[in-house]
Design a protein around this nucleic acid. Sequence first.
DNA 1: GCCAACGTTGGC
DNA 2: GCCAACGTTGGC
Length: 154
Amino acid sequence: MTTQYWLMKSEPTSYSIDDLKRDKKTFWSGVRNFQARNFMRDQMKTGDLAFFYHSNAEPSGVAGIMRICKAGYADTTAFDPKDKHFDPKSIPTRPQWFMVDVQFVEKLPRFVSLEEIKRNPKLSGIMVAMRGSRLSIQPVSKAHFEIIQKMGGG
DNA sequence: GCCAACGTTGGC
DNA sequence: GCCAACGTTGGC
């Protein structure tokens, strides 16, 4: 079984790489998009590596690396009426939404901005740099992952 | 804060 | 099953 690579977005004002560094581990809840849900439910495996991407940030870009430490399971925030991500259509016996657990691996010594990613010809075609790509969980090829990791000095 | 691009919902 | 309306994402 080969390691797969991912990019996962979070707004640093709500949860940043520094928060994960402090917490060591967290659950990636609140994803309410079917395509992103399917990646977490069907494809993410324990041991996969993912970029922690700061979205809606100044600047936006890749801040660090984490490891998937628990594969997809029911997102319990969908069951809680008080939660921001509550969804009455998702019930425990037939959960609609899924989350994974991630653990901190490293904060990149150098932040890799979206602008740098777009500028690097070796990264052409990477999903995060495509116009209008709003998907919050994206697959990343091994080659692209290693290039960005190197750009970040990781 | 703006707004283009997108995903989802719901009327028909 | 179409598609307009709506809500959200996220770069700028």
